[in-house]
């Protein structure tokens, strides 16, 4: 990967709260090649969404601030660019789809106008042309009777259809990178399947790079090429999705896998991870996962683990655990 489309290096994002400063994203690095899909996985407070917000320049200010690292998109650092230029990139090069489509759409504008506005503002299209393009896009993302529905307001669409409208808006200017933050969390399982199938199609069609953010290991499994698991703002395991899922080398990933009841698995007692996701204000010393970890030893308290190659696939698969090899051995042994 000599020239990735997006290269995030040592990204650190902090939030100032009344009780003190928290590090929501802690020295996170990853690369994303053209046409590749990366799944960022984690629970509440893992920093997965903040990572995406940082890439899009959407970290809420003034509480939040990128305090370190670089976000290199297509060879230039987004963090050192003037805000006006970064804004120009949003939409044309980078686009984002959010979890809650209703709050991301303007309730008093017809959806056609909202999609068309992008063409009018950014491409100087005429009103008629923008409308035609809006219908075309709505059709492409699978909204039935697009020519009629283009004049409807957001509240007249169901949750799934609204998410399609959001995807249509994100795709309007043919971005090279699409970030989808929990795009199906608010939707029913049948609609979720529709949206994931649509995203997979679009990705193949446009050779678009994609970052899928989710808490659900299963939803992204069919679409993502690589997976990156985050815990307490740090990357704990990363690699090709199948490698990460099959030859898991981090106890957190392993714990998550064991926590999920599987549709085709045996109906036996679940093996949950004890405890709760950490309070970022009071992170334990060393490895943040240590208090919930069955493998924890003294070194975990004294030395924060860094990402290291996993022996089964040292070129791509890395995990941040002092006991990665033990975990791996246990996983392989079943």
């Amino acid at each position: 990967m000599d020239h990735p489309l997006l290269s995030v290096q040592d990204l650190t994002v902090q939030f100032r709260t009344r009780a003190g400063t928290i590090t929501a994203v802690d020295r996170v690095s990853f690369d994303l090649a053209e046409g590749e899909t990366l799944a960022i996985l984690g629970e509440t407070g893992s920093g997965k969404s903040v990572t995406a917000q940082a890439v899009m320049g959407l970290v809420p200010r003034p509480a939040g601030q990128v305090t370190g690292g670089r976000i290199i998109y297509d060879g230039t650092d987004l963090l050192t660019r003037p805000p006006s230029e970064a804004r120009r990139l949003n939409g044309t090069e980078l686009a984002m789809v959010f979890q809650d489509p209703l709050s991301s759409l303007n309730p008093v504008l017809r959806v056609g106008a909202q999609i068309g506005e992008l063409f009018r503002r950014r491409r100087g299209a005429s009103r008629a042309e923008a409308r035609r393009k809006a219908i075309e896009l709505m059709d492409r993302v699978g909204i039935p009777a697009a020519a009629r529905r283009v004049d409807d307001y957001p509240h007249q669409f169901s949750g799934g259809m609204r998410q399609r409208v959001m995807i249509a808006m994100a795709l309007a200017l043919q971005p090279r990178l699409l970030i989808a933050d929990e795009p199906t969390t608010a939707l029913d399982v049948t609609v979720q399947a529709q949206i994931m199938a649509l995203l997979a199609d679009l990705k193949a069609e446009h050779r678009m790079a994609m970052i899928l953010i989710s808490h659900d290991l299963g939803v992204v499994a069919g679409v993502a090429d690589r997976a990156m698991l985050m815990y307490a703002g740090r990357v704990v395991e990363t690699g090709e999705l199948r490698e990460v899922y099959e030859t898991t080398a981090h106890p957190y990933t392993r714990g998550l896998m064991a926590s999920i009841p599987e549709l085709d698995g045996p109906r036996e007692r679940l093996q949950p991870i004890p405890g709760a996701p950490p309070d970022l204000m009071r992170l334990p010393s060393g490895c943040p996962f240590r208090p919930r970890c069955a493998y924890a030893t003294d070194i975990c308290a004294s030395q924060p683990p860094t990402l290291a190659a996993v022996p089964t696939r040292p070129d791509s698969h890395r995990a941040a655990c002092h006991h990665a090899e033990e975990v791996l051995a246990d996983v392989v042994a079943g």
Partner: peptide, 27 residues
């Protein structure tokens, strides 16, 4: 059948091949 086929599988490569039914439209 449609509901079941829409459930995401964590290890699609290991699961037996299933008939994917993607329902159109909404309830």
């Amino acid at each position: 059948q449609a509901l079941l086929s829409a459930v995401p599988v964590t290890r699609p490569w290991a699961a037996p091949p299933r008939q994917q039914i993607i329902l159109t439209g909404d309830i």
